[in-house]
Design a binder for these strands. Structure first.
Length: 580
DNA sequence: CTAGGGTTAG
């Protein structure tokens, strides 16, 4: 008679089969034949491996034939399905468990709440939250952490925070859930703020905390805090695995230090697709197209398959570096060699690439012939950008009008159309577009810039007077700009529309957020230090030209990351070579 | 017998 438990031959056979569908089915067949087909513990293990194998259909079939599933089997099933992102199945098994009169435990809840979080299923999650109360698990640390992250992922940050604040006992994971909630919703400042609080309360950050905080640093361009985290990792001898390594690469690249990013990349023992992609995109953002393409080809040498995201990264690198030939080849290889179907994001990269290079007709032909179905608005937006960059008035107006008919509520299209009219000197049309915007009460997206000084991030918006040293900053900026004018800087004609409101217009150009942030940075840092700015939108031409002059007269290197890429200003020129 | 939080693009 075969023994039971973890040493039984059947159990060993399952372990040996591992998370692979075919071998699992063979073991299952033998179980049935040998009479062990009804052993619940073996079936539980089999189900769990089937989930890991990614075959939800097999899991469903297996479950159907299990005569008496117990609570443990349900728990395992719900846990594994949620872990491998079969969120809906996980919820359905939860429902079955309740209907079968089993009591869900704290283990059940952690898993099922994660599924709700992954689906952003707010209503259902709330219902399950009431189940948690009814069953008396409201104070369980694990369940609470899951709930915090569920509410955060469902865009209910204030609810998440209330739960977090009320937690009687907070573990690192509780902190991580809340910090990550802020970070993933784009509230990087709140994320770092909570991290500082955690540090002040002497809660020891672990490697997950580091990953989350590094992402926040990447968002903010907070190199000081990012370096601190890196030093902490080294001091604590935390294991730099792929995930942590990738977040370091991402942080350094997005904070303007590609070289440091590459050092981390080279020091990593295991490199997966995500890490390769992060490094490629890092090069791309800085305009180092050749390095990006080279790395992309090295991936193949190392036997790693690029995924869809990798292609976005490398194609956008080609676009920003004018590598049309390489980009075209890589795009072709996407389907032919890797069997990946290009989607909107890739099309946008291609149109952007042709457009930047001045090949407007190629871009147009690409849209008409390569993209078969109705091209997405994002594709036309890229085309419009190219028309503006190369001052193609007729095509620009046509594209803009098309975009406005498809997305009449998108303020970005109006701003672009108006700028094109302004460039062509059609002031009557500029006014007209502006009036439409006012009538529809469409507001341009608010621009802001951040700068980090002494590991604290400061935020400036246009004409911002909220800073305590406002007077000093404005005075210094005025002085700086007059020195720029003496050196030959000519402010851009005021008619290009950046701001819709009349009062804002006067102010707009002189006090754009990046100029304020730079003035503040120059005041607060010692001579020779690089100034690093992050801007949420793209930089305007006037600021771009002004910063070139500022870099000369103050003899400083100024690095600006805008919505799309990096600009390294040094000695009067910019690394983007005026194409951005 | 199990748990909660983590990386890449635009």
């Amino acid at each position: 008679m075969e023994q039971k438990g973890h040493h039984s031959p059947s159990y060993q056979a399952l372990i040996k089969a591992g998370p692979r569908l075919k071998p699992l089915q063979q073991v299952q067949a033998r179980l049935v034949v040998s009479g062990f087909g009804r052993s619940r513990s073996l079936l539980t293990k089999l189900l769990s491996l089937a989930c890991a194998a990614g075959s939800i259909a097999y899991v469903r079939r297996l479950f159907f034939f299990i005569p008496n599933p117990d609570a443990f089997l349900f728990d395992t099933l719900i846990k594994q399905t949620s872990k491998f992102s079969f969120s809906i199945d996980s919820l359905l098994f939860y429902r079955r468990m309740i209907l079968s009169k089993f009591s869900p435990s704290n283990y059940t809840f952690t898993a099922v709440i994660k599924s709700c979080a992954d689906l952003s299923a707010l209503k259902l999650g709330r219902v399950i939250h009431t189940h948690v109360f009814v069953r008396g698990y409201g104070l369980d640390v694990h369940v609470q952490a899951a709930l915090v992250s569920f509410y955060a992922k469902s865009c209910n940050l204030s609810v998440a925070r209330k739960l977090f604040d009320k937690m009687p006992e907070k573990t690192v994971v509780s902190w991580n859930s809340m910090i990550s909630g802020y970070e993933q919703n784009g509230f990087a400042k709140e994320a770092t703020g909570l991290f500082y609080l955690m540090r002040d309360l002497s809660v020891k950050p672990d490697s997950t905390t580091c990953v989350i905080v590094l992402s926040a640093c990447a968002q903010l361009g907070a190199i000081g805090l990012g370096r601190w985290v890196h030093e902490y990792i080294v001091a604590q001898a935390l294991d730099v695995n792929v995930v942590l390594g990738t977040s370091l690469i991402n942080m350094y690249a997005r904070c303007g230090q590609v070289g440091k990013a590459r050092e981390v990349f080279d020091s990593m023992t295991e490199i997966n697709v995500v890490a390769w992609t992060a490094m490629i995109s890092g090069y791309g953002m800085h305009g180092y197209g050749t390095q990006a393409v080279e790395l992309f080809h090295q991936m193949r040498v190392h036997g790693r398959r690029p995924n869809s995201v990798t292609f976005v990264a490398v194609l956008s690198a080609c676009a920003h570096a004018g590598l049309v030939h390489e980009g075209r080849q890589i795009f072709k290889s996407m389907r032919q060699e890797y069997g990946l179907m290009p989607v909107v994001e890739h099309h946008v990269c291609m149109v952007d690439m042709f457009g930047r290079a001045g090949l407007l007709n190629e871009a147009y032909v690409f849209i008409k012939e390569v993209i078969r179905e109705r091209p997405a608005p994002a594709v036309w937006t890229a085309m419009l950008g190219a028309c503006k960059m190369h001052k193609n008035f007729d095509m620009g107006v046509e594209v803009a009008e098309h975009l406005l008919s498809v997305e009449p509520e998108n303020p970005g299209h109006y701003v672009m159309l108006s700028n094109i009219y302004a460039l062509a000197g059609r002031m009557d049309h500029v006014e007209m577009v502006r009036n439409i915007m006012i009538r529809k009460s469409l507001k341009k997206q608010v621009g802001y810039s951040t700068i980090e000084v002494d590991q604290r991030t400061y935020l400036f918006s246009m004409g911002d007077k909220s800073h305590p040293d406002t007077h000093e900053i404005f005075q210094y900026l005025d002085e700086l700009m007059s020195r720029c004018r003496e050196a030959g800087y000519v402010p851009e004609s005021e008619w290009v529309m950046h701001e819709v409101e009349e009062e804002e217009r006067e102010y707009a150009l002189r006090y754009h957020s990046e100029k304020l942030a730079i003035a503040f940075g120059l005041l607060r840092s010692s001579h020779g230090m690089t100034i690093r700015i992050v801007k949420n939108l793209r930089m305007c031409e006037d600021c771009h030209s002004a910063i070139k002059f500022i870099s000369v007269i103050t003899n400083r290197e100024i690095i600006v990351r805008d919505k799309l890429r990096f600009h390294h200003f040094k000695g009067g020129s910019c690394s983007c070579l005026d194409y951005w």
